[in-house]
Design a protein around this nucleic acid. Structure first.
Length: 644
DNA sequence: ATAGGGTTAG
């Protein structure tokens, strides 16, 4: 009974199986203005018309009448109606259609059942979808793929993978739709490699959807080489494939490669849109490339309604140390979500504006925006940064009650910082002991940092050992530990640390600083003299050191427990990369312009003092971003308050 | 009829 023949209609018109009340039909008939004679065929015509006009209420009325009279329309019309339900999120109507389609033991075409399954999936009613799926007689590749896609989207990865296996077992061949869906559910490299093999075997690896999914999953598992391999084998490519690979590198903190790929993409003639720009901004953020970020900002203006993109822009300005720009973006944003607020709060705090950060948090609460886990991290960081111990303790102890958020590692990390800065080291130790979650290397580093500031050797050794247990590749901590031992004449221990380093093949990472001058990035590496102006820079540096010594600068050579980065050869102290970068900035940037440096390692005490005094003497604002802290030097002071 | 890329954290 797919299309109606006049015979069938006649039969039902005379004797309708009354599934619905007769009043409903009468009203409906009246509202359709249908004459009795023309009723059945014109009912179907009306139904079809209403479906294509997307007039859902009338189409549903017509449907109920058809149901009463056991009339069925064709599949395409029903699919239009279902689309209409989806667009309006009319779940109840969708369910009525379902009943109608299967009434009187009828089984619709596979095509139509698939659409129905998809409808339930889109409504988030996975059980109903599964139910329809289980009962259908002929499941084709679309039926299976719809279910797999639904489970992937719902993060029920096991289910998605299980369905792929079941599908293969039933002899249904997966297509590119199936693979691009199931790849999202890949929760291990083993699965991923197996799937990739299948994909190659059946020749689906040229499909752009499959390709971008592969790139995405490989980068999610940190296998950028493989992601790049999939990308470079590209014969067919589109913007999404480009965006996937750029996002892969941007998210794995390889901004350089992300930006290189972005340039390649533009050369290949692709125009970046929101998604790509978001990743490009993230790359700029990671590399602290303010000037490039500003250039990208120009392209962002075209999409000023895009929340995610604006959040990325906001973060870029915060992390590049330009709070003026960040604030301007924040104020002008048409829509803000909890991420926008969290970004701004953390950004203010990191750059030394803790009071403003806490004020912003208050206005956020007033506006009724619910803080999340990350927001509270920012708030605690702000407290820590401003030395607001009591406020910090208050938020920490009441976050569960006030915002329903359980304190996690990051919150403990902030609190250890906070207590450490305030000199309450033993409380910090207590805190780490009472953590519910296992402290990780970063948590122990917070404690080690507090020990460094307060010169507590015993706790420092303990913390360093914990860090190395959790992160055996952390060169800086080996060096620091070895220095602590050397300073306390524990030569056997020194030798043992050195041995461990050699055995594990740990090399000290050389200190490196970057500065952007007229769209060029200049890198200064400790001990590297390849910069074309290095001679001049060194001469200038020596003169500056001499001048600074006249105003009280004493090169600080007591940097055991101070130098976190292992750049501690005394001779090279004066040539630490940030000093070179700063001097180059002084030489190249016009007066009044802020000097912005990014470092790969933490700044040492000597460079910190040097920069403070230099900022005053030269009347410059100098911003140095190290891997964890931001230092705004101005007028002999630093925004970090000498705690870092 | 079924599919792919983006934002906040110590």
């Amino acid at each position: 009974m797919k299309t109606i023949s006049s015979k069938v209609v006649k039969k039902f018109v005379t004797k309708p199986p009354s599934l619905l009340s007769s009043t409903a039909s009468l009203t409906s008939i009246a509202s359709f203005n249908v004459s009795n004679k023309a009723f059945p065929s014109s009912l179907l015509d009306d139904f079809t018309k209403f479906c294509y006009q997307r007039d859902l209420p009338r189409a549903m009325q017509a449907l109920e009448l058809m149901h009463t009279h056991c009339i069925r329309a064709d599949c395409i019309t029903y699919s239009e109606l279902i689309k209409c339900c989806l667009a309006r999120r009319a779940i109840q109507h969708g369910k009525r259609i379902h009943v109608h389609l299967f009434s009187n033991g009828h089984v619709p075409k596979t095509f139509l059942i698939n659409i129905l399954i998809n409808m339930y999936v889109k409504f988030g009613l996975l059980h109903d979808a599964q139910d329809v799926f289980d009962k259908m007689p002929d499941r084709n590749v679309v039926s299976w793929t719809t279910m797999i896609s639904a489970y992937s989207a719902a993060k029920l990865n096991d289910k998605a993978l299980e369905f792929l296996v079941l599908m293969l077992r039933e002899g249904v061949r997966p297509n590119m739709f199936t693979y691009s869906s199931v790849l999202r559910a890949c929760d291990g490299l083993f699965n991923l490699r197996q799937l990739h093999c299948c994909i190659i075997k059946i020749g689906l690896d040229s499909d752009v959807f499959v390709r971008s999914a592969l790139i995405d999953v490989y980068s999610r598992w940190g296998e950028l080489e493989n992601a790049l391999r999939v990308f470079d084998e590209m014969v067919t490519g589109d913007l999404v494939v480009w965006s996937s690979i750029i996002a892969g590198f941007a998210q794995n903190s390889d901004g350089d490669e992300a930006l290189r790929l972005f340039k390649r993409m533009k050369r290949a003639g692709f125009l970046a849109q929101q998604t790509t720009l978001t990743s490009v901004l993230r790359a700029c953020t990671g590399l602290a490339l303010l000037e490039l970020g500003r250039q990208v900002h120009v392209h962002v203006l075209k999409y000023d309604q895009d929340l995610i993109l604006n959040n990325a822009l906001l973060d870029m300005y915060c992390k590049c140390g330009s709070l003026e720009d960040a604030n301007a973006v924040f104020v002008r944003m048409v829509e803000k979500d909890v991420i926008s607020w969290s970004t701004m709060i953390a950004g203010l705090a990191q750059n030394g504006y803790s009071k403003e950060a806490l004020k912003l948090f208050e206005s956020m609460k007033v506006l009724g925006i619910k803080p999340n886990y990350v927001t509270i991290v920012g708030v605690l960081f702000a407290c820590s940064h401003a030395g607001l111990v009591e406020e910090g303790l208050y938020y920490f102890h009441s976050m569960k009650e006030l915002f329903g958020i359980d304190p996690g590692r990051e919150h403990y990390g902030c609190m250890i910082d906070l207590l450490g800065r305030a000199g309450r080291l033993s409380e910090a130790v207590d805190l780490i002991n009472e953590m519910e979650c296992e402290p990780d290397a970063v948590t122990w580093r917070a404690l080690l940092n507090a020990c460094r500031v307060h010169r507590n050797v015993d706790v420092a050794i303990h913390a360093a050992k914990q860090i190395l247990r959790l992160d055996p590749q952390d060169a800086g901590t080996y060096v620091l530990l070895s220095n602590i031992y050397a300073n306390t004449q524990r030569w056997n221990d020194v030798a043992e640390v050195r041995r461990a380093m050699t055995n594990r093949g740990i090399k000290k990472e050389p200190g490196c600083s970057w500065i952007e001058v007229s769209k060029q990035i200049h890198a200064f590496i400790l001990g590297d003299r390849s910069h074309p102006q290095i001679r001049e820079i060194n001469i200038q540096l020596n003169q500056l050191i001499y001048k600074l010594m006249g105003v009280g600068y004493v090169p600080d050579t007591n940097f055991v427990l101070q130098d976190l980065e292992g750049e501690q050869m005394q001779d090279s102290l004066r040539y630490h990369s940030e000093k070179l970068a700063i001097v180059f900035g002084l030489m190249s940037l016009p007066r009044g312009q802020t000097i912005r440096i990014r470092k790969n390692l933490r700044i040492c005490g000597d460079c910190h003092l040097f920069t403070k005094l230099l900022a005053k003497m030269e009347q410059r604002i100098i911003v140095i971003r190290d891997p964890v802290r931001y230092h705004h030097f101005q007028d002999g002071l630093c925004s970090c308050g000498d705690f870092w």
